[in-house]
Simulated scan of single mutants.
Amino acid sequence: MQQFVEASSPGIRLWTEQRGSADAPPLLLVMGAQATGVGWPEPLVDALAAHHRVIRYDHRDTGRSSWPFEERPYRIADLAEDVVAVLDGLGIERAHIVGLSLGGMLAQLALADHPDRWISATLMGTSALSTTPYTRPDGTTVPVDELPGIAPEVLEMWARPVEDHGPATEVERRIAHWRVLAGDRLPFDADFFRTLEHRVIEHTGHYRVGTAHGRADHSGLLRSDALAENEVPTLVIAAPAEPVFPPPHPQHLAQSVGNARLVEIPGMGHALPPAVHAPLATAILRHTGAVPPTA
Rank of each mutant, 00 (worst) to 15 (best):
A159R: 15
E197T: 06
R64H: 06
R56Q: 15
D184S: 13
P26S: 04
L109Y: 07
G104F: 02
L147D: 02
P247F: 03
A112C: 11
A107S: 15
T204V: 05
A128K: 00
T132C: 01
H213Q: 10
W158D: 11
E81L: 11
L222G: 10
E229D: 11
A239Y: 00
H218N: 11
D145N: 14
P161I: 12
T16P: 02
R173A: 04
S224H: 10
P250C: 03
I201V: 14
G20E: 08
R208K: 12
I119M: 08
A50Q: 14
W178M: 14
T122D: 01
P248N: 09
H165F: 05
A47N: 09
Y207F: 13
N230P: 01
A168S: 14
P250F: 00
S8H: 12
G183Q: 00
V171T: 05
D191W: 00
T62C: 14
A159T: 07
R117D: 05
D46Q: 15
A239C: 10
R94A: 04
F4L: 13
D217L: 05
T140E: 11
I284S: 01
E153C: 00
R136H: 05
G37E: 06
V154Q: 10
W67N: 11
Y57K: 14
Q3F: 09
L155W: 00
H198E: 14
H52T: 11
V54F: 10
T36D: 15
T131Q: 05
Q34Y: 01
G39E: 14
L235W: 01
A47L: 14
P73L: 03
G89R: 10
H287A: 07
L100F: 13
I12A: 06
W178C: 09
Q108A: 08
A95W: 04
Y57S: 13
R60M: 10
A121L: 03
E229S: 13
A110C: 05
P41Q: 03
V171R: 09
L106Q: 01
R136A: 13
R261D: 00
E81C: 06
M31E: 11
L181Q: 10
G63L: 08
E6F: 07
S224M: 05
L111I: 08
R117N: 07
D184Q: 13
H165Q: 09
L221D: 05
G91P: 09
T169E: 15
L155R: 11
A121T: 07
D225A: 15
H213S: 04
G269K: 02
T126C: 02
L253M: 12
T135P: 01
E231P: 04
A176K: 14
P233A: 07
A216M: 03
G149S: 06
R286G: 15
E202L: 11
D164R: 08
I92V: 12
H249A: 03
L181W: 07
D116F: 04
V5H: 12
E146L: 06
P148Q: 07
